[in-house]
Design a protein around this nucleic acid. Structure first.
Lengths: 224, 224
DNA sequence: GATCAATTTGTACATTTGTACAAATAGTAA
DNA sequence: TTACTATTTGTACAAATGTACAAATTGATC
């Protein structure tokens, strides 16, 4: 029970940015949510841009470390399909589930990343490119080894769609609930992870030279 | 050569909102981009919120009409796999490619939708839910008929991932170029459409009761 | 308790924001 | 031309914004 104003400011900033975007949230909004004074923000962070930078610095490293850790485990699986599934899971899970100590939560931070990415926030862009591209590349490499014959182009695009699906699941979960008439709960992150992993598995798997979707189609076309 | 200030304002507003988000763009930014005066915005649209509303009203109906038209054509295909592919394409293409007359372009409008959706813009939310949910539902129904045995949950989640992938392809194409080391051009919309259609096809197809990814995996597990 | 640094508060300031509106201009029909 | 409407311009204004900073408060060390 001592979240030290500084922590409270950071945490509330993530939540507010994730919910409304960067420019729609004022420093006074953040201060009010954290039950603190506006001045405390300039004192601790200097500027709004720097507050954002500190948020990224706090979450990026732990999240990617966890990803690399899980990727390392996944790579030891010999069966290529099982390995592919585990690799995809290693990429997705740390973005959805908050890691042990780092409060704020992986999902809220990821959602904030999604929103700032959509806004093309220039402060965020540089950090993201530096910190996340390397990790993404490592995952694409690992996935490539599971899907022999897959084109580099296909792999990169599918990794883009994977991240887009991940982001949108966090940004707009209400749509899932609405479209299903309430039968599916879009806020259920466990379910979202499971569905995204399976969908991405199929998406990557179809790049394989022999058992791709196109091949499937041609086969079925001929029998029809 | 007569884009009538009103048209220029609308068009530039879409571009700017799509690039930076709603709150980051001021009415003066829009006026300057359209080489017009600030006052012309209040004259033509009354308020910033209403400007947004008019943008949606202009693009939503034509885009969804085109989607329904293509969906109708796709449904006439008898082979379920070919039909599935055509249905997915019918959903994606109008969002990427600008329809004939409605200037502004489908892609720019879609990108704007993506950004405002990420920002949770309340003005946009109501319009989106009303205008697009019905169309999405129709597509999910049509897809369901192509994939016997697919769970409703799986279909809805995959439609969510499809839309997320679509949005993210428009929001952050630079990432594709970067991750591929320049080998793939993220701005190439033709390629993006093709890749997204194929990936989504595999994603939906894997929901089929017999040839799903899970079944594939179990099979491979046993032989390994 | 006294001293000093760290933090928190309150307030002030220049800019920018959306909006309003009167004056100027352009367009059109008689 | 003249009369009238539609549009465009310029400017004004209150509210909100990020930032700065002096004063007040708290916390720790001696």
């Amino acid at each position: 029970m001592r979240p030290s104003i500084r922590e409270a400011l950071l945490k509330n900033a993530v939540t507010l940015f994730a919910g409304r975007g960067y420019h729609a949230v004022s420093l006074r909004d953040i201060a009010k949510a954290a039950e603190a004074n506006v001045g405390s923000l300039t004192y601790h962070f200097g500027s709004k841009a720097n507050l954002l930078k500190e948020i990224y610095e706090r979450h990026t490293q732990p999240m990617n470390a966890r990803r690399r850790e899980l990727l390392g485990e996944a790579r030891r699986i010999s069966n290529p399909d099982e390995r592919l599934m585990a690799i995809i899971r290693a990429y997705i899970v740390p973005a959805f589930i908050s890691s042990s100590e780092s409060d704020g939560g992986g999902a809220e931070f990821t959602r904030m990343r999604a929103v700032l990415s959509a806004e093309g926030n220039p402060d965020a862009q540089a950090i993201i490119a530096d910190a996340f591209d390397e990790t993404s590349r490592a995952f694409i490499e690992a996935i490539a080894e599971c899907v022999p014959g897959a084109s580099r182009e296909g792999l990169v695009w599918r990794s883009q769609f994977l991240l887009g699906g991940l982001y949108y699941a966090l940004i707009n979960p209400e749509r899932v609930s609405r479209l299903s008439g309430g039968a599916v709960n879009g806020e259920d992150r466990e379910a979202a992870v499971g569905q995204l992993v399976e969908a991405s598995y199929a998406s990557f798997r179809s790049l394989a030279a022999d058992t791709g979707a196109a091949a499937d189609m041609i086969k079925q076309e001929k029998t029809a």
